[in-house]
Design a protein around this nucleic acid. Structure first.
Lengths: 140, 140
DNA sequence: TCCTTATCAATAATTATTCTAAATAAAATT
DNA sequence: AATTTTATTTAGAATAATTATTGATAAGGA
């Protein structure tokens, strides 16, 4: 993997990237830090932030923001949206259905140039919904 | 206007709300603070945060997050998306075209319950595009 | 009125993230 | 190879936005 721009693929960056590919569960910087630290105990949180920043700057990973919560990182480069569970905090990838495009979905200001398009869905994930139902039927 | 939940409509909350309605330009908490302070010099930033929080909790305003930038606040309660200019930082409301719905646009995990749906478009606003063009033709 | 609850403002604290500076390492050049 | 340049890492300090705490004040109900 080459990063371009004179950036090197260092051991730290490689580990950070590996960790993201191994568990595509949208970890936060701290999550990544803890996972990398197991295999590379000397690494610092600042380095993890640097690596995440470099990797996303180079387009190898995507930074995902959910409200004002800590940023999460995602190795899925295909265009997709995110579902965020308000109960357990899980972030799931959701596929955009075919034919859904920014320019089609919204009335853009005339003359605007679109760079990115983000779709976020908030709600309760299947697991939490199921639990909720069990709980409420129990209490009933 | 009633807030419910035993919350009162205090002078501070009223001013904060008024300011948002007067200029629907998605001000940040600090922007709101500066505007309210002109008419109510004793108010503190913390109180503005409290008011914004109470008002959005009660559903009178919407908190809009753009990446990790400071939250912005919006009095437009109709369902809409946001366009964010990467150059000048302006946030514009964009209408969702008719027939565009969360459930239609994305393949949701089976069993998930949707609460909210957010569309964010990033790019360059018409003004910045125009300026850019003028600049580049000048330099050419 | 008395009592409970809500509110405000100031300040302190928290959280996520970025910056700084010094040390290290790899690449480029001589 | 030695030197120079450039990129990188690290620890810790710094920052910015936001939240929590506290003590005083005020509103509403019994």
């Amino acid at each position: 993997m080459k990063l371009g721009d004179g950036h090197r693929m260092t051991p730290q960056r490689r580990e950070v990237y590996e960790v993201l590919m191994e568990h595509p569960d949208h970890p936060t910087a701290t999550d990544v830090f803890m996972r990398v630290k197991e295999r590379m105990p000397a690494i610092s949180l600042a380095t993890v932030y640097n690596c995440l920043d470099t990797l996303s700057g180079a387009g190898f990973i995507i930074q995902v923001n959910v409200d004002r919560e800590p940023s999460r990182y995602c190795g899925n480069l295909a265009p997709h949206g995110h579902f965020h569970c308000e109960k357990c905090g899980t972030v799931l990838d959701v596929q955009l259905k075919e034919g859904v495009q920014a320019s089609k979905a919204v009335k853009l200001p005339r003359g605007a140039v679109v760079e990115r398009f983000e779709v976020a869905v908030r709600g309760y994930c299947p697991q939490c919904v199921r639990k909720q139902k069990i709980e409420s039927s129990r209490s009933a």
